[in-house]
């Protein structure tokens, strides 16, 4: 599933940069950045899923997968 929480950027590379190029880097902007005050009655995960995924509230889930 494409993860729209991940954003990408390319660090600037100078001609005399000693380190090997990393190229494109990514960072995660989790959904809670866009929520000011949590509305009531949000959809929830089941208890086991919530424990595994790290949050009870579906809209706040952020996979934060390893690259």
């Amino acid at each position: 599933m494409n993860n729209d929480q991940v954003r990408y950027y390319e660090p600037f590379r100078g001609p005399f940069d000693p380190c090997p190029p990393i190229g494109v880097k990514s960072y995660v902007v989790p959904p809670n950045q866009f929520v000011t005050f949590q509305p009531p009655n949000w959809p929830q995960f089941s208890p086991y899923d919530a424990l595994r995924l790290g949050t009870l509230w579906q809209p706040l889930y952020s996979p934060y997968g390893s690259r």
Partner: peptide, 21 residues
């Protein structure tokens, strides 16, 4: 134990939610 942990996590989340709601 897994069931207990799941229930405890839900209770933690609901506690935090109820603090603000």
């Amino acid at each position: 134990l897994h069931e207990l942990q799941a229930i405890d996590f839900v209770l933690v989340e609901l506690t935090l939610y109820l603090d603000t709601h």
